[in-house]
Design a protein around this nucleic acid. Structure first.
Lengths: 137, 137
DNA sequence: ATAAAATAATACCTCAAGGTAGTATTTTAT
DNA sequence: ATAAAATACTACCTTGAGGTATTATTTTAT
């Protein structure tokens, strides 16, 4: 499962904005290019603005721009704002007490992989992405 | 998010059976030890039997035993039977055409980590788990 | 034989994620 | 001023995952 649909949308939108240079991005443009349901995407944009990743400019000629520097927005921050990043540091089978001293049967085999997932997402910022043509995919 | 609740339950049940030695496991015993909702767990056990991981023995003194050798049941097989393992080999932002030749902006930073997740889950069998006291956690 | 103790099957309930619709508000080109 | 073009807000709908309830079936101890 890995990520919720909404997290996928959020990452898709923000990574598009980070890698394709426009002076400003309208919601309309983003839904078209990224095949995201309009109404749902609209609410998501508002959430992303409230979370402080982007700034909205209302009214005619309005749109969105980043509210922070790209290198200050980590993928884990985005995921955290949508579905909570704690989920990724959980025991694989959901046990609360599971740790190195009191491991579940899967702890050992999962620990290193889990850490790599966490590290990758929390050490990669929007400034670290490839500049590719996402709209064609 | 990583795994669905049901996948967690399935892994919890089968890893318990794999690491705690009983001649046979009743559904009742498993729900008690593992804090899994009875009715829901009951359906899940039937599914796990239909998927060929365990054999059920109906009637008085009935219960479940493994239908295969532990070393022939990989974690990815279990996850696959519940929610599909393809999800784990997807593009992080859900693009269908994303691959090495046509990468999305996140492809490069995610590829190695994704592969480690896949490898860990598809190379670990129930015979490779730690023998720990899962019921206390 | 029969009752007890187990799994199997079927139908239904609940809730949150994802999605839709309509209206209000803001800004600016004209 | 006003209409157009954008975002914001609010309310509702849909669907599938997770969970519950009841009854049927199977097996075995007695």
């Amino acid at each position: 499962m890995i990520l919720s649909k909404t997290s996928e949308y959020a990452l898709k939108i923000l990574s598009f904005m980070a890698t394709e240079d426009y002076p400003q991005y309208t919601a309309h443009l983003l839904y078209e290019k990224l095949s995201i349901p309009r109404r749902y995407g609209s609410r998501l944009m508002t959430d992303l603005a409230k979370s402080g990743f982007i700034k909205s400019h209302r009214g005619r000629n309005g749109g969105y721009v980043f509210a922070k520097k790209l290198e200050d927005i980590y993928l884990s921050d985005i995921i955290d704002s949508i579905e909570g990043f704690e989920n990724f540091d959980k025991c694989l089978i959901g046990l609360y007490q599971c740790d190195l001293d009191n491991p579940c049967p899967l702890h050992e085999i999962w620990a290193e992989t889990k850490q790599k997932v966490i590290d990758t997402l929390s050490q990669t910022s929007l400034a670290d992405l490839q500049h590719t043509n996402i709209e064609d995919l």
